[in-house]
Nucleic acid binder design. Sequence first.
DNA 1: AATACTCGGATAACATGC
DNA 2: GCATGTTATCCGAGTATT
Length: 634
Amino acid sequence: MTMTTILILQTGMMAAMMLVGGQPILIILVMRLIPCLTSALSNLDALGPSTLDVNDWAKGKAPSSSSLEEYVGMDYPKEMLLKAVKAIGYSHANEFLDLLTFKTLGNYPSMGNCFTPGCTPHDAADDDDIEFENLNDDDDAIDFANWSDDDDGIDFKNWDDDDNGAGETEVNSNGSSDEDFTQAMLEKDENIKSFVDAGFPEVRANMAITRGADDALFALLDSKNFSAREVMNKIFNSLKRRKEGRFMEESKKKRMRCGGEAQGNWLPLNGSDDELIVLPNPMVGFSLPNSMVQPVKRSLPEQAIGPPFFYYENVAQTPKGSWDIIKGELYGVEPEFLDSKYICATARKRGYIHNLPIENRSSLCLDPPKTIFEAFPHYRKWWPSWDSRKQLNCLTTCVPSSRLTELIECLLSVAENPPPPHVQKYVMALCRRYNLVWVGKNKVAHLEPHEMEYLLGFPRDHTRGLARKWRYKSLGNSFQVDTVTYHLSVLRNMFPDGIKVLSLFTGIGGGEVALHRLGIHMRIVVSVEISEVNKRILRSWWKQTQTGKLIQLPDVRTLTDDKIKSFIEKIGGFDLVIGGSPCNNLAGRNRFHRNGLEGEHSSLFYQYPRILNTVKSEMARMKHLAISLCCKPV
DNA sequence: AATACTCGGATAACATGC
DNA sequence: GCATGTTATCCGAGTATT
C-alpha cells in the first residue's frame, strides 16, 4: 500500500511522508518542490502584497497571504507557497494543495503503521538542478500578407457579400463568486463533518481543515490521546466516500465487439420508436471499414429518397431531444452515430443523417493511424508506462493553459518513478481532459495544429497561415475526413462526369477534401461559410487541387429560396448537399448557453433543412417540368 | 453513486500598428 | 494613447457509463 502525506509541522516545516508497504519513506516533497518552483520563478515578477481575498482564490485569482495562512498554518513561509501557487496557476492551487495535504489520503483505503514528524527542510539554494524553461512554443505563423485575392473564375457578382454578424452572443456575466464561495464552504463543511464522524470534536476538526494537516493531527492526537495510526485510520475511514481502490486505473474493458452488430444496441431503424433517441453503444455507425461488424440494413422514408443526396453532421452527445428534432427536420431519417475512434486515433462521437446508400461502402484508400503511437511514433520515447491511453479524446477548439504542463512537470519531477497512484490518477485526469501528449521527460503538451490536421485527415498545413487560435478553432470544428470519406465512398462510381455540391457550413472544407480523396471530380461547389479565414483556407486548397468551379457565399441566411432556385436553374441542380451545422449550443463543453435547438443561436440549424427542402422541391419541380415537356405531343 | 467525456465562451492580459 | 487583434486564463454541467 502506498501512501503519501504532507505534514505541515507546527514549526513551519513541511515534510512529505511516503509509506510504502509499511516502510516509512520520508521524502521532502514540498521542500524540494517549493525551491524548484522558486528557482523556476526567479524571472517572474516579484510578488507584491495581494489584496485579494479567499473568494478571489476560489475564482482563480491569487490567494491572499491571509488565506494561505489559513490553509497552511501560521508559521509556514508564505512567500514560497505564493510563488509555488503562482507557478502552477491559481486555478489549480486547491488541487495542488490537496495533493500536498492529507486530503489526498482520502484516496487510500488504509494507512501504514506510523508517521515521522519532524524533518529538516532543504535549503532552497543548494537544491535541485531541475530547470523549468519557459515553454514558449510559439509557432511562427505565416501571415497571408501576400495573399492573392483574385477570385479568378469565380462569379460573385450576383451575391451580396455582407457579413451580417452571425453568431453574436449575449454577454452573460455569471457573477458566480457567491456560488464558488458557497461551494468552497460546502466542501469545507464536508471535510469537517468527516472528522466529526470519525469521533473528533468539531472545533478540532475545523482547525484541522482550516489550518493544516499538522495542526490537525497534533490536535487530534492531543484531544483523544490516539496513536498516530489510530488517528490516520479514523481519517481514512471517515473519508471512505471515495471508493477504495478506485484510484487504480483499471485497464478499460474493450467494448469493441468484433462480431457484434453495427450501430451497437440501437433502436430499430423503421422509424417506429416513440421514445427519445438513445445513443448506440458501441457507437459504430451502420458499418465500419475493414470490419467484421455486420452492416445494418435500412429503408429510408419515402420523402428522404433523393435527389439530391444529403449528408448532415453534428455532435452525438447533445441535450436530450435534440437529435429527435434534427431527425424530424430531416425527413425522419435515422441518424448514423459513429465514433471516429474506430477509424482514426482520436475519438469523435458524431451523428450523421444522410440518404446515401450504406451498402458497398469501400474501405479507405489511405488507412489512417488508429493509435497514438501509430500516429506519432516519437512520443513513445517519453510515454510513461502508467499512461495506458491508446487513443486521444475528442479534438476540440480550445487549448489548455501552458501552466498545466508546468504543474505536471513539477509534480512528476519531485515524485518517485513511477509516481504514486494518486499522482498518476491526477495527472491522467488532466491528460485525458486536455488531450495532452508526452513530448519530453515528465513533459506534456497539447497537440500542435499540424498534428490535429493529421489526426482529422486533412493534408498537412491545410490551415497553415492562420493564427494558432484560428487553426485550433477551425480544426476543432471540422469533420473527421476519413470518416466522411468512408460514408461518401458510395458516390465514387455514381458521378463519372463529376459532382455538383452545395456545401453548407463548409468550414475548412472537410467534405470537399473527402470527395477529393475519393477521386470524385467536383464540377462545381457552392460553399456557404461565414468565417473569412475558413473561406480563405478552402479557396487556397481549391486553387491547389481543383479544376472545377468554387462559388463562396458568406452566410446561409443570405441564401434565400429565390437564390437557390436561380442557382438550380443555372447549374441544373445539386447532386449532394453536405454540411454540419454549428454545434455551439449542443456541445457538452459549452457551459453558457447549451439550450439545444431552442435558443436564438440555433436558428442556423434550421437553415439546413430549409435549404435542403428548397433544393429538393425545386429539383423535383424541374424534373416534373422536363418530363412534361418531353411527353408533350409535337 | 462515482466516474468519464465533451466540434465552448467570456474576459483579462498582452501584442501590434498607427 | 488608442484601436484592434491575439493569446492566456479561467470557468461546470448534461449525459452516459460503470
